[in-house]
Design a protein around this nucleic acid. Structure first.
Lengths: 104, 104
DNA sequence: CCAATACGTTAGTCGTCACTAACCTATTCG
DNA sequence: CGAATAGGTTAGTGACGACTAACGTATTGG
């Protein structure tokens, strides 16, 4: 699974945001969710597989953190998707609300 | 399915890009893929369900086009995901390759 | 009018995702 | 050492996504 699809799942989006604010253990993350620790663990493994997070073993815990390079790949993937033509259409949506064109 | 997840699927990413460049019929789109027209049609229905595309019936064809407002929602969703903290980590990945910090 | 065209629709398959419950392993603390 | 803790692992389930093949329906051109 590529980084884009991996990051798209709602729970994983939140996990990435949490880890971006600071590295955490699995239990810390699981405490923020209604799903079980096992489910969170599996999301983390999937994210690790996509190169987006990594685990550092410290004593009996595993500190998960975001991998900056993986995040850069994700950003690149999103940018590659978001073509200029798509961007132009968003600008047109703006123009609809505020009907000022570039050359009126 | 929210717009983010809907847009994440690789084939649908390409479909959105194609439609962004110009509106097309289902057959036109399907010609660009190895999967069947039926599969493409189902992707289009899902994208329509997510508010990202719309179909205009013209004779016996259906011209699909991107919905600018839906695209705006998608962009907003992506922006909401991509927090400043995630952005900062990407900047740090840069700093690793070019070790110039903001305050050296 | 009838055959061809453009699509949607449906049924069915296959794979995979998200999840829980239960179990196993490693580590630490008393 | 033995209980408790942290977390990976596995099996099993329900659901869903992606896909194909076959069929149904509207539209149009000869």
């Amino acid at each position: 699974m590529d980084a884009f699809s991996a990051a798209a799942e709602p729970n994983r989006r939140r996990i990435l945001q949490l880890l971006a604010s600071e590295p955490r253990t699995v239990s810390d993350i699981a405490a923020e969710f209604t799903v079980t620790r096992s489910a969170v663990s599996q999301h983390l493994l999937l994210l690790a597989d996509a190169g987006l997070v990594t685990a550092e073993k410290v004593g009996r815990q595993r500190i998960y953190r975001v991998v900056p390079d993986g995040l850069r790949s994700l950003q690149a993937e999103i940018d590659r998707f978001w073509t200029d033509e798509l961007d132009l259409l968003v600008a047109d949506a703006h123009a609809h609300a505020h009907p000022n064109r570039s050359n009126p």
